[in-house]
Design a protein around this nucleic acid. Structure first.
Length: 414
DNA sequence: TCTGGGGTCCTAGGACCC
DNA sequence: TCTGGGGTCCTAGGACCC
């Protein structure tokens, strides 16, 4: 019989807790990291309804005493590293989900440290002693249940779910706590009278399939009985790389569009080359002035990783997307992404890019120069910083709509 | 001062091949 | 001349997560 050997560790209101740690005057007060948009809110601010992703203006209305602080982004990564290094003392089987959250498989560590609950307590104590941060822990037999347990334990708590009590713990909880149930799915479930995870478990899977789709119904039904086959996976490669930029409402303007797209292509290209990746499918998203959005994508015959290739593809896609929607006069966001990623460096010379006015072929002068230029820019930036060279400095003037580069980095996955 | 940024996964229809 | 079904790839959209 499997035992509850999976820990889900989750730092509480991470960015906000770090700020309260660094500045004692902020402790016990409602604070938000960010300005134009709330990147993180302390529990005191959440009590007023402040949530991350919310416009700063709305947050201020909800919580008049809200204190806005700029982020100390380098502290966030340093403290996150410290926390995971403490976890690493208990097991090498760690699956990082984000900067503030991870799954641990401690099945091989019992002979060293005792029961998982004991390890959970020690991790919490050490994180508090060594970093000053509160962290919540869920312990269970599956990843799904461990994550639910840590959510229920928050803030600053721990819950161990013994195998014999799994369903008794799980079934009374609201269905919204499940991974994959957001506002839309919650609404649909409510129409079936489903409020709790137990309600969901009691419904035949076929009944759910009609409204939710077969795949989602099967998935949710399995989870409601705590059937979660996923193990802790230590090596996960990103499957796509993307960058986006919101800029408020603007009239459509070719020069501005080209500048933004070049900047986004540059961000994505730099990361691809740094990670020795290349990709075949380029996707752009256009968000219009009314906040509706569309996507356009194309798949090339061979992978690319050059900024120039990405830019040309993105520009072609954006032009066609805008042409399909002439009724929209304004735009508010672009994103450029690439997927269908392959690993390796031998593919650096550009394939025929026949989707635009420029055709780059392997071994041609144009293709080689593009590649050499990317590499030279990458090398200079490594030494002198991103702003040192290229178009980056001018492209996205910092305004209330954009977010610091350091924050973008923290959100990236490996 | 209306609405950030980086991701994952699923669905559905059409093209194309066997 | 008419026509089958399965598999795979591609595109577009959407829900969701941190």
């Amino acid at each position: 019989m499997a035992r509850p050997d999976i820990l889900h560790v989750d730092l509480d209101a991470f960015y906000a807790s770090v700020e309260q740690l660094l500045n004692p005057l902020l402790r016990g007060r409602p604070i938000a990291v960010g300005g134009g948009v709330v990147l993180a809110a302390s529990y005191e601010a959440r009590a007023f309804g402040v949530r991350s992703g919310m416009p700063g203006s709305r947050a201020r209305l909800l919580c008049p005493g809200l204190v806005f602080v700029e982020g100390n982004f380098s502290e966030y990564s340093r403290l996150s590293d410290e926390v995971f290094s403490i976890c690493d003392d208990f097991t090498p089987l760690i699956e990082k989900i984000s900067i503030d959250e991870a799954f641990l498989d401690v099945s091989g560590s019992r002979h060293l440290f005792g029961k998982p609950g004991v390890m959970g307590r020690r991790i919490r104590q050490r994180v508090l002693d060594e970093t000053g941060l509160p962290i919540s822990v869920g312990v269970a037999r599956t990843k799904f249940l461990a994550k639910i347990a840590s959510q229920v334990a928050k803030p600053d708590g721990m819950i161990v779910v013994p195998v014999a009590h799994e369903l008794a713990f799980l079934h009374p909880l609201p269905v919204r706590l499940m991974w994959g149930v957001g506002p839309v799915t919650q609404d649909k479930l409510r129409q079936y009278g489903v409020e709790t995870i137990g309600d969901l478990a009691g419904l035949p899977e076929s009944t759910l399939a009609g409204r939710l789709g077969g795949g989602i119904a099967r998935h949710l039904h399995a989870l409601s009985w705590n059937r979660d086959p996923r193990g802790v996976s230590t090596s996960r490669r990103a499957k796509s790389i993307s960058s986006q930029s919101g800029f408020g409402r603007r009239d459509i303007d070719d020069e501005f569009i080209n500048r933004v797209l070049h900047d986004l292509a540059d961000r994505v290209g730099t990361r691809m080359r740094a990670g020795e990746r290349a990709g075949r499918t380029i996707t752009v998203r256009i968000r219009f002035g009314d906040m509706t959005s569309i996507t356009r994508s194309m798949t090339l015959a061979a992978p690319i990783s050059s900024t120039g290739g990405l830019y040309r593809a993105a520009r072609t896609l954006v032009r066609s997307g805008l042409a399909d929607h002439p009724q929209h006069r304004q735009i508010s966001l672009f994103s450029v992404g690439i997927s269908g990623l392959s690993v390796g460096t031998a593919l650096q010379l550009e394939l025929p890019l026949n989707f635009d006015d420029t055709v780059l072929r392997p071994g041609t002068e144009a293709g080689r120069r593009l590649h050499d230029l990317d590499r030279a820019v990458d090398a200079l930036r490594l030494r002198f910083g991103r702003q040192a060279v290229g178009h980056a400095a001018s492209a996205l003037s910092p305004d209330r709509h954009s977010v610091p580069d350091e924050f973008r980095k923290l959100a990236q996955k490996s």
